[in-house]
Design a protein around this nucleic acid. Structure first.
Lengths: 246, 246
DNA sequence: TCCGCCATGCGTACAGTGTGCGCATCGAAC
DNA sequence: GTTCGATGCGCACACTGTACGCATGGCGGA
């Protein structure tokens, strides 16, 4: 039942037989393309996005997309920048810089878990991501750390951001695995646990505490939240020592 | 002049005309395949490795590789595990845990920069990397942090490792960009600087200090070393606060 | 009202990708 | 000498990103 907008799959020789362009169907546009690409990435992961499938979703041919986007890589850049807008960085006038930075870090993490392809794509691009939203994100972070009184804010930012990226990308990868398995996170953990225990048997220091096994199989999301918060606190403690006069 | 081992590109109907297998040519083996794959990854990056090209490098057909390796993903896992063996984690009996952890972190970073595809591939795999070398790496880290006296060593490890991964993957991506540009790192920075300055013009907090511009264009590698060491110290300071009685 | 232009869409094509299948070959075990 | 299992490989399939050139339709100017 799904047919191309103007022609059937076999071209019809007569002009008259061809469908009219549907007026209600919005024209292809860069924004629409990026939006749909993000939807596909979110739903099925980075390797499920192809220009043909994306075109089909928009009732368009694959190569039509290239009128609005130079290359698939550029499309990915646009998707990254678009999604970056979802990260909320508090304004710089907050009294408590730790709270503000924590909020920003958590917001980034949530965004990265909502779009598990984000860290993967970000990690592939050395820089090049100078899109407006990403610039804004950086600027707001810089303002925050400057207001906090750090003499070299970019150093502090890099440290926190590296931690957040490392942690988020590991989580995102794990959640992708979970999604692909079709099971609950808890179920998957329970199923994998015996193998992990067996693998750890030969390595005396790798035993997992009982309490953690318990929580991992009951409320894994909470455990992940806690781990992230723990590491973030560590980093912020270390940074606090570098603030002038105490 | 490059021809397949046993046949020409057009099959020759007579058995007699076919080349004999070269006796000195070592047989295909899993190890040889992984070794050559790593060489290709190091030289030309992750998207330059295809089963056909890899086969050609080994004087073999693409599908011959599948006798020794189930799938390309599995090959990547093997490559990751192989390379992980290069990371040096000091034994747990060192008197100064900070020095030992720093050594391990630096060693990981150096490995990740020698093989700039490492973090990329590692970041794609939720877990699944339970290869022997990787297990050994984890075990030695666990021993180190346990000996240091951390009550929950895995928490501390995760924190440090996230930072190291985040930092290393950003650096690796940047170095990949540099390599692709064909320029020196310093030259590339000098060329990109005006654009960066212009982009930062609208964002008051993003200005780059003169001293840093100076160093970035003269000895960028040293600057990167310094940044990594700075953040690592931050994290270790934060962790030190969590050691019992002190 | 007509003409011409130009942005947009798309069919086709090309060079590549990972990998399943079945056949040819070879060394070793009996 | 025969059989058998392991190994290599040609072919084929479905799929990828994207260059090219044609068709179309809406719009500005005459």
């Amino acid at each position: 039942m799904s047919r191309s907008r103007t022609t059937d799959s076999k071209p019809i020789p007569s002009v008259w037989a061809r469908e009219q362009r549907r007026a209600d169907q919005p024209a292809l546009s860069r924004d629409a393309i990026v939006r749909e690409a993000i939807a596909m990435l979110d739903a099925d992961g980075v390797e499920a996005l192809s220009m043909r499938k994306l075109g089909a979703r928009l009732n368009a041919g694959a190569t039509s997309l290239y009128r609005h986007v130079a290359t698939k890589d550029e499309l990915m850049e646009l998707a990254v920048d678009e999604v970056t807008a979802e990260v909320h960085v508090p304004p710089a006038d907050r009294p408590d810089w730790r709270e503000a930075v924590t909020e920003a870090a958590q917001s980034f993490r949530r965004t990265a878990l909502r779009h598990p392809w984000l860290t993967l794509v970000l990690g592939q691009a050395g820089l090049a991501y100078l899109g407006p939203n990403y610039m804004n994100f950086s600027e707001r972070l810089a303002a925050l750390f400057t207001a906090a009184g750090f003499p070299e804010p970019s150093r502090a930012i890099e440290t926190v951001f590296s931690y957040v990226m490392g942690m988020s990308s590991a989580e995102a990868a794990w959640l992708t695995t979970v999604a692909r398995s079709g099971e609950t996170e808890a179920d998957l953990i329970a199923r994998l646990m015996p193998a992990a225990q067996r693998a750890a048997a030969d390595h005396s220091h790798l035993a997992i505490p009982h309490a953690e096994v318990e929580e991992a199989t009951t409320d894994p999301a909470a455990l992940r939240d806690m781990k992230f918060a723990y590491g973030l606190d560590v980093v912020l403690d270390g940074l606090a020592l570098r603030l002038p006069k105490g």
